[in-house]
């Protein structure tokens, strides 16, 4: 159904704009700003798959983006090395978060709230009030490059989405994570370690956030302390609209990607008709609420009918 909405939405936008929206330039702009919402949505979805929340998505992304910027611009680290460090750091922070959740048994919400606070501080510590922009032109070129008007970064995001989807569909650890999220007791009785699933989920979530940070560094003219500040809420919106369940057990990669697409579509439509940017948020709120209430109603009806 989401696909139908996407296609219909896009086509009507093309028609409404008198065809202008089908032009190469417009397409490129449209997709240029899609990877970040897609990727943060995926990062959150991975955490949700085992029933965890990751409030540190934006803070970690911002921190990593700034860290990579500083590494390249101030310390002269070559771009590939900086990227590798960034990815490793993201995964490490995720693993640490997961370990804290498992070993202290403190609610993951609180742990990620704390790591979020720490990372925001660290990000500010790194860049202060300046904007770091004097880094690898190669990376920036990659950020602007496109094939047939489709930006490379968008293809990268799609690739990540495909990998995540494959991980949850076909890799044993992915299946075990879903088993833990769906029914922890049954998972234990089948020899699955729920603790390991939680740690792995946070690690992967951190890794995907790190990829988002790389993309951000590539597409932005520069990085500063505001990066990541507005990621948190959209990161929840995409998977929830896409059909993820907060208590775990679902991995809706396609849904998350399409939901991010729809949000982007709303934003483009808004720009096309020169409405205020804030209308987008209003629509997203309405859609989130509408989706969950509808799903809920359908569930109730189904369980009511079968008993």
């Amino acid at each position: 159904m989401l696909i139908a909405i996407c296609v219909a939405g896009y086509l009507s936008l093309v028609v409404a704009s008198g065809g202008a929206f089908a032009s190469g330039n417009a397409v490129q702009t449209f997709f240029q700003f899609l990877p970040v919402p897609v990727l943060i949505g995926l990062a959150q979805m991975i955490a949700l798959s085992v029933g965890q929340l990751n409030l540190a998505v934006g803070a970690l992304g911002g921190f990593l983006a700034c860290a990579m910027g500083v590494l390249m611009a101030d310390l002269g680290v070559p771009a590939p090395a900086a990227i590798v460090i960034g990815l490793a750091l993201g995964a490490a922070v995720g693993a640490l978060t997961g370990a804290l959740v498992v070993f202290t048994r403190i609610n993951g919400f609180i742990v990620t709230l704390a790591t979020m606070t720490i990372l925001i501080g660290a990000q500010y510590r790194l860049v202060g009030t300046r904007t770091v922009s004097d880094y690898s032109p190669g990376l920036k070129e990659f950020g602007q490059a496109s094939v047939l008007n489709i930006p490379l970064v968008f293809l990268l995001a799609l690739g990540v989405a495909a990998l995540v989807a494959m991980f949850f569909r076909a890799a044993a650890p992915g299946r075990r994570m879903l088993a833990s999220g769906s029914n922890p007791l049954a998972a234990t009785l089948s020899g699955v370690s729920n603790d390991r699933s939680v740690i792995l989920a946070h690690t992967l979530s951190g890794l995907v956030v790190a990829i988002t940070a790389v993309v951000t560094v590539a597409v932005s003219p520069g990085v500063n302390r505001s990066i990541g500040g507005d990621w948190l809420l959209p990161s929840f919106a995409a998977p929830i609209i896409g059909g993820a369940v907060l208590t775990g057990g679902t991995a809706v990669v396609l849904g998350t990607v399409l939901a991010a697409f729809i949000v982007r579509l709303v934003d483009s439509a808004r720009a096309e008709f020169s409405l205020q940017p804030s209308w987008v948020n209003f629509v997203v709120g309405a859609v989130v609420l509408g989706t969950v209430v509808l799903t809920r109603a359908r569930e109730t009806r189904r369980s009511g009918g079968s008993s």
Partner: peptide
């Protein structure tokens, strides 16, 4: 003690 969203085969082999 089954995972509802998994297939029969996967539940058996989990």
């Amino acid at each position: 003690n089954l995972i509802p969203a998994f297939s029969v085969a996967e539940n058996i082999a989990l």
